[in-house]
Design a protein around this nucleic acid. Structure first.
Lengths: 318, 318
DNA sequence: CATTGAATTGATAGCGCTAACATTTGTCAA
DNA sequence: TTGACAAATGTTAGCGCTATCAATTCAATG
């Protein structure tokens, strides 16, 4: 028992015994069995993180934020990949909960009703990331996708692109909200045209960006700008326009989303909407841990906002 | 006891009781406690995967391969991020081993001697990925980085680029071997020049590719091609050359590494070395599971090879 | 219908730890 | 020195499973 204490609450054990214990632990190479600990204590130091993709740069940045924040702490990150499937997400939540995690970080607002039920009844702290919305299960760190794409659309309009289009792949809930933001803002300006919106359920790639913008230009040749659902598509759009000799930004404007590092390096550099993915992961983790340690966060929902970063690809006036 | 059996070995329980148990399990929403199971059985269904980065596309592809292979199985993937630090890797290995995992998948051949010791004494199956080399701890799935970069270098030489350079960021062991391959092949052809090699410890980005190629061209202006340690750098190199008006591929050839999806979409498309990252993850997982089920793999080491994919950025002759 | 062996089910102990409480030791003032 | 209290250490039971072996049921046979 004293050993158990020494390892978990060294300050509850006298200096002398602490030293003695440390010596023996070192000599024997003793490592506590987390399974026994979990069983006896009825809880673990596991923090489950569920993301819809491990390859999507957006989520790998978030993951990195979490890992960097967790580094060196006693908290153990457990990653789950729901692959954009609500069913897989449900399975993951179930699996994670069976492990009695200390906390759960999951993406978005749109869980299946079954998952919701599980989460409501869960005996652990929960942080939703990627989005902001009403009624968090517990805590929330994200931003408004609708507002972000509205701002990007306004930027295009302000630059004089009066026939903007939209391309998107894999319409997950966040993509749909971004599309909605575009539509709202375009309608407000009286420039919305359904045939200038091209989408596909396929996952985003640069090559797909080429295809989608090609499709857009054939369906609505008068389109003079495109808001891309993410930066991969935007880069593809740029490449395709270059191949076709469409002059960027004079004839055609391109705006991406997320502000991945690469878009600033492109030629011309690509306008994008900066999102705070690393911070999102870090803050989600930090708030979760604070809550676990009894310090309730100031606010349940944290909106990290976004920034439209104007670059060469939409620098029409200047 | 019969319930435990019903859930783990349904074929050891009669049809009738099985049905009865299933009904009750459903009604109560019973989920077994993995901690108790681990404690009692002295083992788990956890397969630990340790990668040096979660943001690097290479590893996220490998991870995806593993996750896709594991999907639906009883095996639980536990991801660790060593962040290119042998020390963090050691901590992770220690943590993972304390959980009595069924298996471990880890990257590369270059573990710290302490880590090696841990792994040798580990009571679980081990697969090393990313590279091929002698003396696997247990199993190995990868390819030869030296051979791959030698082949890429030969391609450049064959295309008539007689003053090739090399740019690399973050010199992890695999990058170093790729650099070594370049050097070997360039020396063989009598065209090696140390000032045509530019490296930095910073992590790879597209922007860094721009900087490195700029650096290369200022240090050795007569360089007429560059082998890039990875595709991010290659894309940056392309962008930078375009900005400078250096004509690709006529004046200057660019070859990347890994064949990320985006390089084929670029303008001109970028030559690269295709590696089989998804397969690597999948096969590592599959072989591990087979070994766990008693079916020893045909060979301890599997070399997945690579393919040089010639594209526009080195299409000098044609 | 008894006998046999296989199939199925059940009883028991214990995995390694921690919560809760009990006991011992140490410290200080009266 | 004594008592009172805090600090440190120890004792006990049990977390929820599974390995092992024991007991029971079942099916097939003579």
């Amino acid at each position: 028992m004293t050993v158990s204490r020494a390892l978990r609450n060294p300050d509850k054990v006298s200096e002398k015994t602490l030293l003695k214990i440390k010596a023996v632990v070192d000599r024997l190479g003793y490592v506590p069995d987390p399974a026994a600990s979990a069983l006896a204590a009825g809880k673990t130091n596991v923090i489950g993180v569920i993301v819809p993709s491990v390859t999507n740069n957006v989520f790998s940045d978030v993951m990195r934020g979490v890992y960097e924040a967790a580094e060196g702490s006693k908290w153990q990150i457990q990653l789950g990949n729901s692959r954009y499937s609500p069913l897989e997400e449900e399975t993951l939540v179930r699996t994670f909960l069976s492990q009695k995690p200390a906390g759960l970080i999951l993406s978005g607002l749109d869980q299946s009703s079954e998952t919701s039920k599980l989460l409501m009844g869960a005996d652990c702290r929960i942080v939703q990331i990627m989005e902001c919305g009403p009624d968090p299960y517990d805590m929330m760190v994200g931003f408004s996708h609708v507002d972000a794409s509205r701002a990007a659309t306004r930027h295009l309009l302000e630059q004089g692109y009066d026939r903007p289009g939209y391309i998107a792949a894999r319409l997950d809930p966040r993509s749909q909200r971004r599309l909605k933001g575009f539509k709202t803002e375009a309608e407000l300006a009286g420039v919305y045209a359904p045939n200038r919106v091209v989408t596909t359920p396929r996952p985003s790639t640069v090559t797909l960006g080429c295809e989608l913008v090609a499709d857009l230009l054939s369906k609505a040749p008068d389109t003079n700008a495109v808001l891309c659902n993410n930066d991969d598509l935007a880069l593809g759009a740029l490449f395709e326009c270059q191949r076709r000799g469409v002059r960027i930004p004079e004839e055609f404007g391109i705006c991406g989303f997320n502000d991945l590092e690469m878009v600033a390096a492109a030629n011309p550099s690509i306008t994008s909407v900066r999102t705070f993915r690393l911070d999102m992961g870090r803050i989600a983790f930090e708030n979760l841990v604070e809550a676990l340690q009894g310090a309730e966060p100031q606010q349940k929902t944290i909106d990290l906002g976004f920034d439209v970063i104007p670059r060469g690809s939409t620098e029409r006036t200047a």
